[in-house]
Design a binder for these strands. Structure first.
Lengths: 256, 256
DNA sequence: GCCAGTCCACTGGTCAGACCAGTTGATTTC
DNA sequence: GAAATCAACTGGTCTGACCAGTGGACTGGC
């Protein structure tokens, strides 16, 4: 911005706990404190930062609510550094839907966009390694489905497949957001869908869908891979959103 | 999930400040405490919840870091309820990039996806009101550009236009995420781009681009509207990402 | 020497009480 | 009536204390 546009910016007071939190956050984000490492104990931080314990604790609380650290009473090693994850994102997205600021239909439409784009990019940028990884995961899903195990193990492998696709798309952000949205959706309507009547048939259909996706990605057919994701989500969720929102999902489907 | 799949889930201790924060958050998200309303003072909350002040303060800190409330020393009205916003999202996204877990290229690629999809849906779902709103904003941008005002005012109107498009797309989530990503990008490379050599020419080009977008949206040409967003972002940012990431941006461009 | 059990120093979680700087609105003063 | 003053608040911070729980050191028996 030009200098005359806003010569000075208002100065807002910076609280002590903010500066403490910033210092720690910077070290975590810069990699100086990698995931798995430990922070000093609270009383040690008190003497290092030269502030009271309540200030340190408020700072730690902020970092914890951001998902950067985790602390446990009685742990002589101090709080554990977790690093950046998608948890915070999915939490924020969950709040958006819980507040009815955005509907379930929008959430699923958004997921259609993300997964479609993930597939599209994967079809374009995937390596051979990516393809074998995905094929292996599909194989595992098939064997799980045949073995008649519970849905939980199947869903986990399913999530791994989507993660493999996201990795092949070479965009971490896309993958993290897709996972966050996925988690938010699950949190909202898990109970409605969890006990599908015929789990076996559902798993078989899911395996089939994933095979189609893999084939499109292998063939480098980006538009088709994208469209597959959109269609699958539409078919799966269309019945679970309010009728008013159904048009949204359909709109995301057309010539995308 | 089937009952035999995981009959019991581990029980983790719930801290007092968490329950306090949850109670308040629930009331905010349910709309019982709308944005602009006030929370009781901390000492009042202490007596209402029956916990110590530090517990109340840690809870408020969590809510504040989630962007749900804002407190100011000396305010006799108590903390202000802000409601859900995109700030929290952009903060999380900023952390992702600052931690080098995802690059600037990925961020911009993601923005290409979001804005393209926003345009696409807007082209399909826009109403006449949406169109006039957008046209007005473009007109305002043009007059600002002609008047030779600073970039700041121009950028604000630009942001309003994108918001209008997001609104026309009938997906709040898409708009909020797009704004969050936009903010994250700005935070990272604002200083690099802020003082463009020829602001006037840049603004003129921007107005022209927005007119093309509006025309496509008005015509209902969804694919073209989407492609316009991708191309504009590519043209604007391609030079600012590392060469290794340039292929990412290009990949997001092709037959999308 | 090894393993069980005990014990204790220490952790984070919580509370109570205090002080400070800053805001606000009523009160006083001119 | 406007300006200065004041007192009753607020949130921000610090101190010191207690608790339940953890984990390593210590101790006992084998």
């Amino acid at each position: 911005m030009a200098a005359f546009d806003a010569p000075f910016t208002p100065v807002e007071p910076v609280r002590a706990y903010q500066r403490v939190a910033e210092q720690i956050e910077d070290r975590i984000l810069s990699g100086e404190l990698p995931p798995g490492s430990r922070l000093p104990g609270e009383r040690e931080l008190v003497s290092q930062f030269g502030v009271g314990r309540s200030t340190v604790r408020e700072a730690l609380r902020v970092l914890q609510s951001a998902g950067l650290i985790r602390s446990r009473p009685g742990d002589p090693l101090g709080a554990e550094v977790l690093g950046v994850s998608a948890d915070n994102l999915s939490q924020a997205l969950g709040r958006l839907t819980r507040s009815h600021l955005c509907s379930l239909g929008e959430l699923i439409q958004f997921r259609m966009v993300l997964e479609a784009e993930s597939n599209r990019l994967a079809a374009r940028l995937r390596t051979e390694d990516d393809l074998t990884r995905m094929a292996e995961l599909i194989e595992r899903m098939r064997s799980l489905a045949d073995a008649g195990t519970g849905l939980r193990a199947f869903s986990e492998t399913d999530a791994l497949f989507h993660r493999a696709v996201a990795e092949a798309s070479r965009n971490v952000l896309l993958g993290l957001c897709a996972r966050a949205v996925h988690d938010a959706v699950v949190e909202i309507i898990e109970h409605k869908i969890a006990n599908v009547a015929d789990a076996a048939a559902w798993m078989a259909r899911s395996v089939e869908h994933h095979e189609q996706v893999l084939a499109a990605i292998r063939a480098g057919d980006a538009p088709h891979a994208a469209q597959l994701a959109r269609r699958a989500l539409h078919a799966y969720y269309a019945d679970h959103v309010e009728p008013a929102d159904r048009a949204l999902l359909t709109a995301a489907l057309e010539d995308a």
